[in-house]
Amino acid sequence: MMNSREDNGSWKLGVLFSETGVTSVIEKSQRNGALLAIGEINSKGGVGGRPLEPVIYDPRSIPEEYGRLAEKLISEDGVRLLIGCYMSSARKEVLPVIERRNALFFYPTLYEGFEYSPNVIYGGACPNQNSVPLASYLLENYGTRFYFVGSDYIYPRESNRVMRNILRQGGGEVIGEHYLPVTVGKEGFADILLDIERTKPDVIFSTVVGEGTINFYQAYYEAGHDARKVPIASLTTNEAEISAIGAKAAVGHITAAPYFRTINTAKSRRFLQSYANMFGSDELVTSCCESAYFQVHMLAEALEREKSLDIECLREQLLGSTWDAPQGKIKIDPDNNHTYLHARIAKVDSKGDFIVEREVRRSIKPDPYLVTPDLNDRRFRLQQAS
C-alpha cells in the first residue's frame, strides 16, 4: 500500500478534463469546478495540514486518451485519486485502468446508468434522477410525439433506449431517431431538420453533446423553428453551450439537471461568487461543474477523517457521507456508489438564462439500473419552483 504522505507532502489528485476538442466546452467548466474546490480546501490549510495537488492532463476529447492518461497518472505520477471524464466512452476507457490499479475515480457527469464499480464514485444524475422527471414534464406540457437526435456513441444510444421505455409507460411514442458523429457541423443536421418539419413532433429529445449541441440548436433556429412551440429538451445542454448558442437561438429550450446557476440560495450564491473570484465570471458554471466541485470537497472530508490513501478505507468513509452542495443536501448512496441528487426542469429565457420551472423537493435516491421507472412514483412528483 502506498504511504499516505506523498513525497512532497501533498495529496495528489489526477484531473482528466479536456481543454481542447469537441467536448471541451463543458469539460472546462468541470475542470474549473474541481480547481475551485481544491483552491478553497488549500486556502483553509489543506487536508491534515497538507495541500491537495492537482495533476492535470488534457485528453483532447479523444476517448482513448483518457485511458492512456489515467494509466500515466497512476503508474508514473503516483496518483491514486482521479476525477474526470464527460463522455461515457471516455469513462469506459478509464474504468479498467482504475479497477486494475485499485485507484479511486470520481465521475462528475450525468450518464446512462446500468453500471457499478467499487472504484468509482458517481456524482452525476442517472436516468431515474433526470430522464424520468423530464419525461413526466414533457408529456404533461407538450405532447406525446417525440423525435430523438443524438451523438453517435454509448451515452446517447443508451439514454434514448431508457427514455423510449419511460415514454411508452406514459403513452408517448418516438416518431424519429437519428445519430450523428460527435464532430458534426451545422450542415450535418439539414436532413434531420427537414424530417422534423415533415413529421411535426411535439418535442425533440436531444442527446447531442459538445460542439454538436451548439451547431444543432443554431441550425434549428436558422431553419425557422420556434422552440417556444416545439422545444429541444435535453439532459446534456447546460449553461456553457447556451452561452455559445446565443440567447436568440436558445430561448424556449429545456434541460433537466440537479443544478442551475440561477438557483437563488445562499449556498449557490457563495459558490458562484467564489467561482467568479477565481475565474472572472460565473457565466459558464454548469451542473457538471457543480458536481466536480462537491465531489472534490467530499473527497477532502473523507481524506481528513481517514488520513490515508487506503482505497478501501476511503471508500468506506465516502459511502453514506453527506454534503451541503450548491444544489442542496446530497448523499453518496452506500448501496451503489451513486449520489442522491435533486431534480429540476428549467427553460431558457430571452436573456439566455435557465429559469427553473419545476423541481422535486427532496433529493432522489439513485436507481442506476432503473428497477422502478414509474412515472407515477411520488418521489418524482414535480412541483412549481419556489
Score class of each variant (00 low, 15 high):
T236R: 11
V79K: 04
R228L: 14
E65N: 15
I98E: 01
A266V: 13
V15M: 07
I56M: 09
P108M: 03
Y221V: 07
K329H: 12
D335K: 14
R269C: 02
L309F: 10
A135Y: 13
G246Q: 08
G45A: 12
R344P: 05
L193E: 01
Y221S: 11
G170E: 04
A325D: 04
N336Y: 15
G171K: 11
A125M: 08
L235F: 12
S29T: 13
G150W: 13
L95V: 11
D333C: 09
T207N: 15
A385Q: 04
A346L: 07
I62H: 05
D152T: 01
Y111Q: 10
G49Q: 07
N141Q: 07
F380A: 02
P334A: 00
E211D: 15
N32M: 10
R228I: 06
V356L: 01
A219K: 07
E187I: 12
T286N: 00
T265M: 07
P63L: 01
Y137H: 10
R379H: 05
I26E: 00
D349C: 06
S10F: 08
L341N: 13
Q295C: 03
D324I: 14
R379G: 03
E112T: 08
W11L: 00
M278Q: 15
R305W: 12
R378Q: 11
D58K: 12
I83W: 11
I332T: 05
P63Q: 01
A70V: 06
R198H: 06
D152L: 02
V79P: 01
G67D: 01
T286F: 03
G224N: 12
V25M: 06
E239A: 14
L110Y: 11
Y221Q: 06
Q327F: 11
E357I: 10
P326N: 09
L69V: 11
